[in-house]
Amino acid sequence: MANKVIVETTINGDPVELLCEPRQSLLEVLRDVLELTGSKEGCLTGDCGACTVVIDGRPVCSCLMLGVEAAGKNVSTIEGLATGAALHVLQRKFLEHASLQCGICTPGFLMSAKALLDRNPNPTEAEIRYALAGNLCRCTGYDKIVRAVTDAAATMAGRSSRTAHGGAVPAETASGMVSEMLAKGEDK
């Protein structure tokens, strides 16, 4: 009964052929079959959003989808958010704003935020909060997360004409940013 099936899909831009049991969720397939453990399991019932991936441009809880359903789809996970060594602006802003404490919800928030900004580059605070309502964070009270997404949107808008990758910056500059922030004092 537990016959495995071959699934052809696209993950983070790459064609992937994988073998899984039909009962395995996409989350299990990502984590256990493909070893992409960046998508997290928080509830398995779609309530926490820690397993959020983007499928054909829409945020989806990968725990509420079978792996076999990914056939023919375009799946983006947290592992594909940075471009090579260059962090996505959202990732950078999450770091700058100290938007993560334990970090377990962070991949899910980043993917939800990515799906939002791809559709709506200039969201209001209410739109941001609505788009992130399917992601639970128990550490931060959300304040610093909302600030990071707001800042990322602004930064991307300002830079979209200059960089090809939606305002991505090299990961190496992450440490450079430290001194930059020291210089600024960063007291808001």
Binding site: E41, L87, Q91, L95, A98, G103, M177, L182
Partner: peptide, 24 residues
């Protein structure tokens, strides 16, 4: 009193950080 980027930050925004369930 300053606000540097956390040292485990890049790992945690890229999905690379390993939580207990991520080990095999």
């Amino acid at each position: 009193g300053t606000r540097p980027i956390r040292h485990d930050g890049v790992d945690k925004v890229t999905g690379r950080a390993k939580y207990g369930a991520d080990y095999a």
